[in-house]
Write a protein that binds this DNA or RNA. Structure first.
Ligand code: SF4
Ligand code: SF4
Lengths: 162, 162
DNA sequence: TCAAATAGGGATATTGTATATCCGTAATTA
DNA sequence: TAATTACGGATATACAATATCCCTATTTGA
């Protein structure tokens, strides 16, 4: 059970977009170059973000992406669910219904204890991701990343932002 | 990102083994029949439990599986990790290393903020599963499952347990 | 006005993992 | 001794993740 790599890509892209000045847009091409990723495939991840309403887009030269909300309104969970989907990690196949001791046509009353425990764990996972915003992330990165690289990257991005 | 169905199978099998009288063993064949599952494939899941040391096995006729620990010592996390593996759901591909603004050979100092957030969420998930034991589960099931089916299943199992 | 650049979407190929089955071996029991 | 079991290896199948390609509509800017 591993998250698709698109999740990492989308998280990094949103981190970059979070520190983009108001009103500027950054293209798929720039984001792909910056992270060393296949442009066409990264585009799919960004489209997922767009469909989820997390980013805003413009067309044409100098077009691209910007965040649709302020960084402190955008959570990790938003991004993860946009590309990974909001489904449960535990899908119940209702194998209890195969129990030969049950009378035919016996109807179960709701999800059983096993499934509920697993779903609570899912919720704990989501809850942890919901607590962290991209404002938090940028703050941490600013403190941790080498200042030369940080500002170098910022300049690199600004030069390409439309 | 979906858990394999083996996880559900293993959880159900451990639930059954939890209410098995001390010293008795239940075979793959019986467990497969009870849940309506392919015997050969279910066997792989049970072998995972065995390799993880969660169950004890005996060979020959009347052989099979029993829990290696008491039900209140066996957690959901034990079983889930035995069949799904203990790896992280977020695997960092270190795409920050592709940043063209970085000097060549620049060496990152440990995992970055993005990965840490994701790993903390994983830990929250694991923590939730670690809190629930099979003693808890059996207690819940006894209270919820139709008494006729519960005791019927118990008899069915006893008849086949070696 | 027009050429270039962009997001977006559909089609498709490739890869990898989950699912499932089959068979041989060693151990154990009745 | 014959039947039954766990176990592991090999293999086949189904499906999802990964990756690329191509076409369209839109917008920019020269
Ligand atoms: S016991 Fe729970 S998890 Fe298992 S099949 Fe029934 S509802 Fe699903
Ligand atoms: S920023 Fe974090 S998650 Fe992304 S590649 Fe670097 S270490 Fe991995």
């Amino acid at each position: 059970m591993i998250l698709k790599s698109q999740v990492e890509w989308a998280l990094h892209c949103c981190a970059i977009l979070s520190s983009l000045p108001e009103g500027r847009y950054l293209s798929t091409k720039a984001l792909a170059e910056l992270h060393g990723l296949p442009k066409e495939y990264l585009s799919k991840a960004l489209q997922s973000l767009s469909q989820a309403g997390l980013v805003h887009t413009t067309l044409g030269p100098s077009g691209g992406y910007r965040l649709a909300k302020a960084p402190n309104e955008l959570t990790f969970l938003d991004v993860v669910e946009a590309v990974e989907g909001g489904g449960r990690t535990f899908v119940c196949q209702n194998i209890r219904a195969n129990n030969p001791c049950r009378p035919k046509g016996f109807c179960e009353s709701g999800p059983c204890a096993v499934a509920r425990v697993m779903w609570e764990a899912d919720e704990a996972w989501r809850s942890a991701l919901r607590k962290v915003t991209f404002a938090d992330l940028v703050q941490t990165l600013e403190a941790e990343v080498d200042p030369a690289i940080w500002s170098g990257t910022f300049q690199w991005v600004l030069k390409r932002a439309g």
